[in-house]
Design a protein around this nucleic acid. Structure first.
Ligand SMILES: [Mn+2]
Ligand SMILES: [Mn+2]
Ligand SMILES: [Mn+2]
Ligand SMILES: [Mn+2]
Lengths: 217, 217
DNA sequence: AAATTAAATTAGATTAGCCTAATTTTACTT
DNA sequence: AAGTAAAATTAGGCTAATCTAATTTAATTT
């Protein structure tokens, strides 16, 4: 129905709208899509023609309701495939993104739903990101950055904001896994280094950069 | 690495070489690929440039060793995905072809091998077609058409030559499944209609057309 | 061997998605 | 309000994969 490229643009616009507000700039899209600005302008015109976005010259772009539905469908599919790769094929959480980036575009409603069922209707992907339901409803998460906690506060590790293999790998090495309870024991004033207690036993020290990549509930 | 289109051409050339001999004609490829002849000529030139085929103007095309390897890899992937769709997701054998036609192009050596392992190293796909091993070796089948059997002879149903949903559906309805023992009880001289005994009980009558779609061992 | 038919190639276009260079529009400073 | 910087668009081109129409090459028939 839609090309891989269109679907990737839709996803990118959706995510930019979620994090940076209603209307998305050409330059922001160009950066995410790793193309040059004129390519984006071009693409937006074509997508506007297909009623996937509303585009006003020099005033940015928004998804239409149809565009939003397609985007969320792709995200659903992406996350389900990631669960499949990790739970069934034995991939590690830092290895699945690129494959899922391809698999997400192989989607019929039926396939996605059968996959969902086969996987036991998971609520989240291997990175803790919520999986939209079959109607495109994505539960609003109330997770907060670990870096917003005060000394003495704690929460459960439920997601990451940094999805790079490098970061995920670091967490593995540090022994911090999704679902772990994390308590802030101390925050060094000089450089915002955090001393954490993981699962009420092991204590570790992480940088502020790492604390900004971790979401807790 | 290679585009979906290239991979589909490689598969088509491979299959035509298997059934119609060494060298493949532009027109034959055009028919299989459902494009017009000049598109094929064009594509063959590009593929020859990439050393996937050897192409001589007006003299047809052959796969190079590299081309053959890629083609068999895609076929391996296609058949493994079909097994996944049927065995794990619950699709019927007449529903999986088009999906596998897409999924086959999502392949890294690692993914294919992990999928193979997850599925328990299946020997054949849901249509009885053999699955090439990780080294690209495809076991030569010695199955024969049911229509070559004489009255009184029997064999096990191990594959089809007609992969259309219509035919597969017909077999379902007729109650003939892969693995069934089939014995030829009678052949009507007038129109080559076959009377078969399935699994040493039920007797059914099939047309010559159907007998030509069934492979037995 | 010549004529006819069939198969394949060349020529010239089109579309999606990308590019660079030039220009225009919008935003930010002084 | 004018000037400068940043963002976006336009203009013009490229490649992969397709098409139709015209031409050439190969195969078949007389
Ligand atoms: Mn993608
Ligand atoms: Mn994820
Ligand atoms: Mn295919
Ligand atoms: Mn098959």
């Amino acid at each position: 129905m839609h090309s891989f490229t269109e679907e990737n643009y839709l996803k990118a616009i959706y995510k930019l709208q979620e994090t940076n507000g209603e209307v998305v700039a050409t330059s922001a899209l160009a950066q995410v899509m790793e193309v040059h600005a004129p390519s984006v302008t071009d693409m937006l015109k074509r997508m506007a023609g297909k009623k996937l976005v509303t585009y006003q010259k020099s005033k940015g772009v928004k998804l239409t309701e149809r565009g939003r539905q397609v985007a969320v469908g792709i995200i659903r599919n992406h996350r389900l495939w990631e669960v499949f790769l990790v739970d069934k094929l034995g991939y590690k959480w830092d290895e699945v993104h690129d494959l899922a980036e391809q698999l997400e575009h192989i989607h019929t409603e039926d396939l996605t739903n059968k996959l969902d069922k086969f996987l036991g209707f998971p609520k989240a992907d291997p990175h803790g990101d919520p999986i939209p339901d079959a109607n495109g409803v994505l539960p609003k998460s109330k997770a907060v950055l670990l870096s917003t906690l005060k000394v003495g506060e704690e929460g459960m590790f439920t997601g990451v904001t940094d999805h790079t293999p490098a970061f995920l790998n670091y967490l593995d090495k540090a022994g911090i896994s999704l679902g772990n309870n994390i308590k802030v024991k101390a925050i060094e004033e000089f450089d915002q280094t955090y001393t954490l207690q993981i699962k009420s036993n092991k204590e570790i020290i992480i940088s502020n950069k790492v604390a900004n990549g971790i979401l807790v509930n």
